[in-house]
Design a protein around this nucleic acid. Sequence first.
DNA 1: ACGTTATCGAACATAATGTTTTATAACGTT
DNA 2: AACGTTATAAAACATTATGTTCGATAACGT
Lengths: 192, 192
Amino acid sequence: MPEKNEDRRIQRTRKLLQDALLALILEKGYEDVTVQDVIDRANVGRSTFYAHFQDKESLFLSEFETMRTLFERHLLSQPATDTSPWSLSLVIFKHAQDNLQLYTALAGKQGGSLALTHLQTYLSALLRTHLKQQSTKKDNPPVPPEILAHYLVSAFMSLLTWWLDNNRPYSAERMNEMFRQLTQPGVESILQ
Amino acid sequence: MPEKNEDRRIQRTRKLLQDALLALILEKGYEDVTVQDVIDRANVGRSTFYAHFQDKESLFLSEFETMRTLFERHLLSQPATDTSPWSLSLVIFKHAQDNLQLYTALAGKQGGSLALTHLQTYLSALLRTHLKQQSTKKDNPPVPPEILAHYLVSAFMSLLTWWLDNNRPYSAERMNEMFRQLTQPGVESILQ
DNA sequence: ACGTTATCGAACATAATGTTTTATAACGTT
DNA sequence: AACGTTATAAAACATTATGTTCGATAACGT
């Protein structure tokens, strides 16, 4: 009896479904894509879909996990320069440029708000660990850290999504410079 | 034959439906509210609903229009201080405080992304007209005006939604001060 | 009191979801 | 190469929500 039957079909079908959803999102937007659309595009049976994923949202979130895994591998392979938010943001801008279709489908205007919500949560956590060294210099900062993080992540995501939705007329480096110029003065005036 | 039969039932039914949706959004979130939920709560017949609104989204957008109308009336009644983005943002923070339930249902986390998208578009336009006096001092600004506006509106909305979703632990004035401290240095460094 | 019309309620068609079942085909193992 | 195992396909099905239609009723303005 085969105990470890690592059927390659499983991986293949998973990827077929993920790729189909990705393409369909770019075509008609996440909201308008039905499960029927996905299985037709992927040439996968209905029951097979539900053997892999609970629903459309589960499939979508598996794409998000793919992006997250790819990104974390990329982040670890980067030479650690400093821990400032603006070196982190540059890494993300560049990673988005290297995985354009995935990022556009997830974080672009076609992707709906689901991934954006998760991205916000994920980046907030990432920012916190990145900033844990530089503890608050001020005892009573004029802007509480929670709001500061929320603001900084939102500001970053606004540039990222604008960039993805407007065919990236500027380089990743240029976008990151804009982000720095907009946010660094205010943030540093608060952190001293 | 009555030519101008301004039936008060029409206005009343409209409001019943709007109020029902508003309450239901706060209870279970926009996505989870069905048309059936709305008409049950409002005690309105199914066919009557569709005589008033095309679908759930139309009803929701009519709420957004209500907010917009209320806000513009409020804006005109304000003594015109200056045209800076941060005096405009203060007006919005205060108006949100005065119309808490409406703003929370539309712009809060329960409201979905629909209203947020419209709000972003609306505020961007509003910001442009507010800023039309102060033309760009620099010929070639490091950050194009389009991105600047997008950033500023996103940053503002991030504070507004955070505020609404966290039971407003600070006053409207305090929130606006935070917004100013975070964004003004960066924006002015760009506009000279 | 009258004609008008908004509303109700029920019935209906449609479309998408998620489940179940059976036969088939692809897989890893021996 | 033949085996047992298991992922898959396809069809049938129940369920749920949407949006439409129609006739009777009640509320409205005149």
